[in-house]
Design a protein around this nucleic acid. Structure first.
Lengths: 187, 187
DNA sequence: TGGATTGTTTGACAATTGTCAAAAAAATTA
DNA sequence: TAATTTTTTTGACAATTGTCAAACAATCCA
């Protein structure tokens, strides 16, 4: 299901509303390892992934990269804190693979909501969806062993396992890279 | 800062808007260990904590209670999944101490938004706030050792440490109860 | 009050996970 | 392609965390 179809399905967009909306967003293609957002800058855009793969990361006090999110096709790429409050981002968002995105700038998003009222409901729905995702992730980190977390990750993100490095996945799961390598060798 | 003051400060409520809003919510006092929401039921209300302490928990496959959130004064008590989508809750919300709550029913909340438009912005703001909270919690679970998580918890929730049991805090931090007891004895 | 229940601590030990270093493999680029 | 860089794996070992069981302490009511 692509972006248009899911708007029609989940938010009852009409064909007309879809047509009216189009001028307010655009497509962008990023090559591998290109930044969508850099730490320290104010995020002025969000995007829906059409194809490819992205991740969010920051540097911890030891200078190690900590990956906190992966963005697969169909998901919303956003730094909530930076985009919603227009403050500098603490994290980076970068492509892992070449990716095609549907991009909404902060300004266009505001105008789109005014121009096509059905969009009013989207930010809350998106925020609540992210909330439910994070809640699941919290419970996994809270209750599962390293091996169990990896097994669930494999099930949920089989594509990511092919493109992301062991180091990226390890930091996402809160496991040491050598430990994850051993877990993988036993599966 | 109480509930009224924070609406005025963060959402620019006028005295009149506050007065108009009052008929749409009410105060409730719960004794210790009283349920605010039971797993399996559809949540029909949310609340702001005036005083006291609550927690969310569910049972894992071994039948152990897993505490996933604590609600201190000033915070919003909600099961997002159940309240927003009106589906049965997977988790319980229960008081730890006797608590005083400002309660909004699902029906009243809808009417309040219609009657006093300044409320329109609240659900999104609340959802985004919860998102930022959860993001912080994820990073703590992902990057900190058991001891570090407990130290941060102590700083953030000194009140909770006094009322909650070691078992509740341990499950919240994803630590075995005996291990947390040992960590505590060394601080 | 006293008995029962619930919660906490502790010991002995086991399992899991992390650290450091080096080797092997894979990816990048000159 | 060859050289360089990055990533992954592996070994030896250490530290952290979990398990099971028992003792101890605190709380709850009858």
């Amino acid at each position: 299901m692509n972006f248009k179809e899911s708007l029609i399905k989940h938010f009852k967009f009409t064909e007309e509303e879809w047509q009216l909306s189009q001028p307010f967003f655009h497509s962008e293609e990023l090559t591998a390892k290109q930044y969508f957002l850099e730490a320290g800058k104010v995020s002025d855009k969000i995007a829906v992934v059409e194809s490819g793969l992205l991740r969010t990361f920051f540097f911890n006090e030891n200078g190690d990269e900590i990956t906190t999110q992966f963005f697969v096709p169909g998901t919303l790429v956003i730094s909530s804190a930076s985009f919603n409050r227009q403050i500098p981002a603490k994290e980076n968002i970068i492509t892992i693979e070449p990716s095609k995105l549907i991009v909404f700038t902060h300004k266009n998003m505001q105008e789109l909501i005014k121009a096509v009222p059905v969009w009013q409901q989207i930010p809350l729905a998106a925020s609540e969806f992210k909330n439910r995702q994070k809640e699941k992730r919290i419970i996994e980190l809270q209750t599962l062993s390293a091996k169990e977390r990896y097994v669930k990750f494999l099930e949920k993100y089989p594509q990511v396992c092919r493109s992301a490095t062991v180091g990226q996945i390890a930091s996402y799961l809160g496991i040491d890279i050598a430990t994850l390598s051993r877990i993988r060798s036993k599966i």
